[in-house]
């Protein structure tokens, strides 16, 4: 237990280091945020087009769907902020031989990797999602209580952990192929499925996003809860799913680590 505690405290100090180094590159920072806003605009235009063609999508109105979108973006922002360097394990650390250096450190190499995250795009997501969430809560006449704010923050983090766990588990492939980003990216993109009501999908996709890659627990069920809709209670399973998936992911990762052979640089 103390070992886990040590790892976490080292992780936190690494994180504050990366935030400081991010702020150093101001132009990159601003460009990153602007480009993020544009990417969001593209997706929001699609949602807008949907509601030019219909009043509601599987019972969801425009405002509700935007709230779901906002909640998803908030979770993705946290994922981006905490786990972005998972993408680098193959192409950056292993291919260049830097990974061997991490193995010599007295902390778990996974902590070294995720502690090195440097992504400013997260702030763009964060800004957009907060604007969307607050304006839609007001528009839908949902009281913004302390409870609700606490729930949104806690479950955004637990959702981010679920997605992070999936990314960690998939990054084992980099121990074999020395490049991991594409497979993680492919699965990560499945989160977009959970941006829309699950009723529109067929059985296969529902099973995929509920049990195999449980993105619905990360963003969809919490939103149901905030809207006071049916099945909203499933949100409370989210932290449990997060913990289970994290444990499995770290197990898989450790197992992959044992098979790791250096590229010999």
């Amino acid at each position: 237990m103390t070992k886990i505690k040590d790892n976490i405290s080292i992780y936190l100090s690494m994180l504050s280091c990366s935030i400081k180094s991010m702020m150093e590159y101001r132009v990159d920072f601003i460009v990153g945020i602007i480009s993020q806003l544009l990417t969001q605009a593209v997706e929001l235009i699609f949602i807008w087009i949907i509601f030019q063609n219909t009043q509601s999508l599987a019972g969801w109105t425009f405002d509700k769907l935007l709230l779901l979108y906002g909640i998803t973006m908030l979770t993705i922002a946290i994922v981006d902020f905490l786990f972005d360097s998972i993408y680098d394990i193959g192409p950056k650390y292993i291919k260049d031989g830097d990974f061997d250096k991490l193995l010599l450190r007295p902390i778990h190499p996974l902590i070294s990797v995720i502690g090195d995250t440097k992504t400013f795009t997260a702030f763009g997501y964060m800004a957009i999602s907060l604007i969307l969430i607050i304006s839609m809560l007001i528009k839908l006449q949902i009281d913004i209580t302390f409870m609700l704010v606490a729930k949104i923050i806690i479950f955004a983090f637990s959702g981010a952990l679920i997605i992070g766990a999936i990314m960690i588990a998939l990054s084992v492939t980099s121990f074999y192929t020395y490049k991991s980003n594409e497979i993680i990216w492919s699965v990560f993109r499945i989160y977009t499925f959970a941006q829309y009501p699950v009723e529109i999908y067929n059985k296969f996709i529902r099973i995929l996003i509920t049990f195999i890659f449980p993105f619905v627990f990360a963003t969809y069920y919490p939103t149901l809860n905030y809207l006071g809709m049916e099945n909203g209670w499933l949100m409370y399973l989210s932290p449990i799913v997060a913990i289970i998936f994290l444990i499995i992911a770290v197990k898989i990762w450790n197992w992959g680590l044992n098979k790791y052979r250096s590229t010999g640089n």
């Binding site: 699609f46 063609n53 599987a58 594409e182 499945i190 977009t192 499925f193 829309y196 009723e199 529109i200």
Partner: peptide, 30 residues
Amino acid sequence: YKSVLFLFTLNRIIEVVVYIFVWYAIYNQT
């Protein structure tokens, strides 16, 4: 890396899924 072609194709499919299901849902409704 032969897997690249497979993964890039998978990416394309994942991208189209949302579009198609959303439009089918709209079509079934309206």
